[in-house]
Simulated scan of single mutants.
Amino acid sequence: MATTSSAIPLTGVPFPRSEYERRQRNVLAAMASAALDALVVTAHGHLRYLSGYDGSGGYFAPFPLIMVPGRSPTFVVRQYDEQAVRSYSCIEEVVAYTHQQDFGKMCADVLRRYGLQSKRIGFELGCWNLAVADVNALQAQLPGLKIVDATRLVSSVAAVKGELELECMRDAMRMTDLAVRTFQSSLREGVTEGEMAATMGAAIGEHASNAGGEVGLSGGGTILFGERTKLPHAPPSRHPISANEPAFLEIGASKHGYSVGMVRCAVVGRHPEAESLHTLAEEVIEALVDVVKPGISAAAVDAAGREVLKRSGRKGVFRQRTGYQTGINWTERGDLSLEPESNDILQVGMTLHMPNILCSENGYLFGTGAHVLVAERGAEVLSEIPNTLFRA
């Protein structure tokens, strides 16, 4: 049952309550358009977006945030994590369960109390942190429940950033730029990937400490040298870079969960194969930035980059999507994606990461990218670091 909370130092939410209420209103409006009687939010990034709490305790079982028109949101959480939820969220109505097998019954009790046992309820079926077993457990309690896939509902609202969110992303990009400049100034023959990661982390840590500790690197990033640039998403190792080898960096800083990404590459000496890839990637990025504007479809943006690749006669070097929506938890499934046949329409206030990472015949992954804000007149590039190849 719900209980009251006490003040605990260094807790709270990073934004004013009015900001969360604005987000919740926008989600409720989207629910109305989808003819939903309620929405059960379980994706951790979406929980953080709507409440402030990052959902970290939800590895145990879902921590659903139940949104119903005309009611304040209700959080259903594990009893062990209840105080953390209360301390790090703006949600006042918190209901607790104890064991994993209690999730379905407790969630069903809340829906039944609100008269929703046979209504149309949206679930984030395609997002992380909700398993088929969780949905089945709830359906067993409420056989008349009409389950609707609402995977993309919250992400479509969160795709358009407010001013406070954009401030976070700009701050995070300044830290990302610092990381890239540190990478470039520290790159030399013999330095290892792990040493580079430590040097970049120290630079960010020192700055974050001076700024109150609000900004940090989002994960370890991808730092790869030489033959290891053939490994997508590999962690930094003890491998050193040698003369005439490529270096690959994909990294992003984060503030209050708002992450920005950046791809920048370099060579120590010369590496014709990687340099040729980079030249092509720069052309693609320039075409993408030129075409991004409000009202264009995600598929049309993707097509603009692929057209450059097609004209080059090397379209086979690109083996992924063109880009994706960023903000809180940019790895969430269901977010806007720049790829063929995507009919999402870009709007003012959206932020997009477009990493143009190309693959050579010998398997080297190399390229550059852009992180942009969709503004009234087109794309605003958030980074101050040129997308050109750095030579050490």
Rank of each mutant, 00 (worst) to 15 (best):
V132E: 14
D134I: 00
V135K: 05
N136S: 15
N136H: 14
A137Q: 00
A137W: 06
L142A: 06
P143I: 10
G144W: 11
G144E: 14
L145W: 03
L145A: 11
L145S: 05
V148T: 12
D149T: 12
A150I: 01
T151S: 14
T151W: 08
R152E: 15
R152Y: 10
L153D: 06
V154S: 04
S155N: 09
V157W: 10
A159R: 12
V160M: 11
V160N: 08
K161R: 11
E163W: 08
E163K: 14
L164Q: 13
L166K: 03
E167F: 09
E167T: 13
E167W: 10
M169S: 05
R170N: 09
R170L: 06
D171M: 13
D171Q: 14
A172W: 04
A172G: 06
M173W: 01
M173R: 03
R174V: 09
R174A: 11
M175K: 01
M175L: 12
T176I: 10
T176W: 06
D177C: 09
L178W: 01
A179H: 02
V180G: 00
V180A: 02
T182R: 05
S185V: 10
S186P: 10
L187I: 04
R188C: 10
R188Q: 13
R188A: 09
G190H: 03
G190D: 05
V191I: 14
V191M: 00
T192F: 00
G194A: 14
G194K: 15
E195N: 13
M196N: 03
M196H: 03
A197F: 01
A197Q: 12
A198D: 13
T199P: 06
M200W: 08
I204D: 00
I204S: 00
I204R: 01
H207L: 14
H207Y: 08
A208F: 05
A208G: 13
S209K: 06
N210T: 14
A211V: 09
A211E: 15
G212F: 01
G213T: 03
G216E: 12
G216R: 10
L217Q: 12
S218N: 15
G220F: 10
G220R: 11
G221Q: 04
L224K: 15
F225H: 09
G226R: 09
E227G: 11
E227V: 14
R228G: 07
T229G: 08
T229A: 05
T229I: 13
K230A: 11
K230G: 07
P232G: 01
A234N: 06
A234S: 12
A234L: 10
P235D: 13
P235A: 12
S237F: 06
S237D: 11
P240E: 13
E245V: 07
P246W: 01
P246S: 08
F248D: 04
L249R: 06
E250T: 15
G252Q: 07
G252P: 07
S254F: 03
K255I: 03
K255N: 08
K255P: 04
H256M: 04
Y258D: 04
V260K: 00
G261I: 04
C265F: 05
C265I: 10
A266H: 07
V267D: 04
R270T: 14
H271L: 02
H271C: 13
P272R: 06
P272E: 03
P272F: 02
P272A: 04
E273W: 00
E273S: 12
A274N: 09
A274I: 04
E275N: 09
S276C: 09
